[in-house]
Amino acid sequence: MARRRPTPTPKQMTAALLDAAQVAAVMVDGDLAGRIVSERSWRYIRTPNPKYRFMTGDYYDVDHASFLLMKKTLLRLGRLAGFPCGTSLWLPVPGAKGQVSCVVQNGKLHRYYRFGASNQPTPPEMARCLKTGRVVAAPADRDYVTVLAPVRDSLGDVVGVVELCAASPGSRALAPAWS
């Protein structure tokens, strides 16, 4: 009979995610990240139409090849952890100071993404990651264990953040994406 793997503690999970985040900081290509979202999409994210709130989503478009390459990289990074781990790429919204947008995500584990939101204020720990270029463990949370990795481009600039997110052992049941 197969032996059940013991559930890792939050501390063990954080350690595993920190390791994966170090790999992400090396592997995730910031130039590729910058080619994913179309210019028109950024324009509508930055300046939504006040009358037609769905227009930003309607105009959202990505470069297929860049998106797919990034998604596969993130999927592989998520599997480094050894337990279910969601991975998302966040980029600052060009021309909108203090705002970030989720650009690629996998699975249902995500701490920051709000369904349907095209942008949101940068969470403090994400701002710290963007500013310092260091891996950051997010503060303890009832539902999630989260670590953030900086994404650099060929100029050495930090242009984004990878969120690695796992369900905390004591989390409430997490719904699929409908909720």
């Binding site: 930003t56 990505v62 297929h64 650009v103 995500q105 996998n106 994406a177």
Partner: peptide, 10 residues
């Protein structure tokens, strides 16, 4: 699925 929700490119 819809690309606006960021899971897939199409």
């Amino acid at each position: 699925h819809k690309k606006r929700y960021r899971w897939y490119e199409w």
